[in-house]
């Protein structure tokens, strides 16, 4: 269900990134940060704990992203955390990515893999997903060790699963 507040933040972040002229980079960095944020309980607790002063939470963001990420990415994350909307950060970023993809007439393709993919593999994967789904895809790769091996791609409502985890789960179900 669409949340007007999340939509508003996502639209604001998208417009800022687009105005800065680095929407692709910022979108990608925000997507990866959101996935890390989702999977790391300590980081999520630290950035959503209102007992921790906002300046301290913002300095954590600065320490994490400052040296590596685009300054626009750091500022946008800081804005969301500073506004006390840390719990909504993954949803805001997902909405932003969807909005950016729509602007490029693309569909977000989230790919989870146990090991990082090479540039060549990402390009061939994007091409394969585009052919398989008939849509231009905005590939987002998430390194997730819980899949054990292989890949799982989600494009809209379509899920193409080739993970070892799923095969093991199927085996367990049979057992």
């Amino acid at each position: 269900m669409s949340d007007p507040r999340i939509d508003g933040y996502a639209r604001a972040l998208f417009e800022v990134a687009r105005a800065e002229g680095n929407i692709d980079t910022v979108e990608d960095e925000l997507f990866r940060f959101a996935r890390t944020y989702e999977s790391n309980d300590d980081l999520r607790n630290a950035l959503t704990d209102e007992m921790i002063p906002a300046t301290r939470r913002l300095s954590i963001v600065e320490d994490l992203l400052g040296p590596k990420a685009n300054p626009t990415t750091t500022q946008l994350v800081s804005m969301v955390i500073g506004a006390g909307r840390g719990r909504d950060l993954p949803a805001i970023v997902d909405r932003l990515v969807a909005r950016a993809s729509t602007a490029k007439s693309q569909e977000v393709a989230e790919v989870r893999t146990a090991v990082p993919l090479s540039e060549d593999q990402q390009a061939r994967l994007a091409a394969g997903l585009a052919k398989a789904t008939g849509k231009q895809v905005n590939l987002k790769v998430v390194v997730d060790p819980t899949v054990l091996g292989g890949l799982v791609a989600t494009v809209g409502d379509t899920v193409i699963d080739g993970t070892v985890r799923t095969r093991i789960d199927q085996l367990k179900s049979r057992l």
Binding site: A114, G128, A132, G149, A153
Partner: peptide, 17 residues
């Protein structure tokens, strides 16, 4: 093995197309 699995997945996608 990881790379084999990834390549198999990409090949499967290409075959689906």
């Amino acid at each position: 093995t990881h790379q084999d699995l990834i390549e198999q997945f990409i090949s499967r996608l290409e075959a689906m197309a």
